[in-house]
């Protein structure tokens, strides 16, 4: 129920409403929950209300976390080939279950 869809503001209608677009759909959105909005802002819309302005993700932080995770994984699995032997039995288990179902 907490579904929220990104929209782009195309017009400011009054002090608490804007028109915003997602794909080809254009809707009226309430902006009461944001301190300021302007045309072009990307907003997250839930049940007719903008709940936050979206901002560009800081890719560097996520990238460094991936590096950390990969480094950790490298210490756990010295032989990369074993990754596949670990994973593939699980997959064949899954497909057997599907066949039996």
């Amino acid at each position: 129920m907490c579904l929220a869809i990104p929209h782009r503001i195309v017009a400011i209608t009054d002090e608490r409403t804007c028109r915003a677009r997602a794909g080809t759909a254009e809707v009226l959105v309430r902006t009461d929950l944001l301190s300021s909005v302007q045309i072009g802002d990307s907003i997250l819309v839930h049940a007719g209300f903008a709940i936050e302005k979206l901002q560009e993700e800081d890719g560097r932080e996520l990238e460094s976390l991936w590096e950390e995770i990969r480094a950790l994984e490298a210490t756990l699995s010295p032989e990369p080939v074993s990754d596949f032997t670990d994973i593939s039995p699980g997959m064949s288990d899954g497909s057997e279950r599907m066949n039996h179902a």
Binding site: M1, C2, L3, W66, I69, E73, L76, S77
Partner: peptide
């Protein structure tokens, strides 16, 4: 690299919960 190698990080029985229905 979106499909992670879960196997190595799970060294003991582990329980996670997703809180949200979405």
């Amino acid at each position: 690299r979106t499909v992670p190698f879960f196997g190595g990080l799970v060294s003991r029985p582990t329980t996670l919960m997703e809180v949200c229905g979405t």
